[in-house]
Amino acid sequence: MTEPGISRRSFLDRLLGLGVLAWLGSVIYPVVEYFKTPPQGEAEVTSVVATKIQSVKPNSGLVFRFGREPAILVSGPDGKLRAFSATCTHLQCTVQYRNDLQKIYCACHNGMYDLNGRNLAGPPPRPLTEFQVTVKGDDVVVSRT
């Protein structure tokens, strides 16, 4: 075999190589796709009833369910109601209200937020997302702004 260009053997080798690659791709691709969890089709929640107004005491906090994520309703020492996403902006732990400090606090890494959700101390890089609070009758309604 002295003819120029590629020999029949190396051509077939390459073809076989390509075939193997294509086969691997056709096996691996569906497996990788299989691992991607499809969206649950849950409707985005825009508003929930957090609690009844009678059960809210000044200088207290309540973690409640807001769609897929936790949220926190804070009643300041002045009795003013505010609500935020309860997911810490640092590493997604769930925050709580500390009535001794009058601050929103994350126990995982000592993150601290003020009553407006602003990050004060510790590792949190961003403020908490704020929600709107309205009182309709007895219900404390929290909604996305």
Partner: peptide, 10 residues
Amino acid sequence: DPFGAAPQGI
């Protein structure tokens, strides 16, 4: 409890 606050000492 996915909708409870993280406890101290994690």
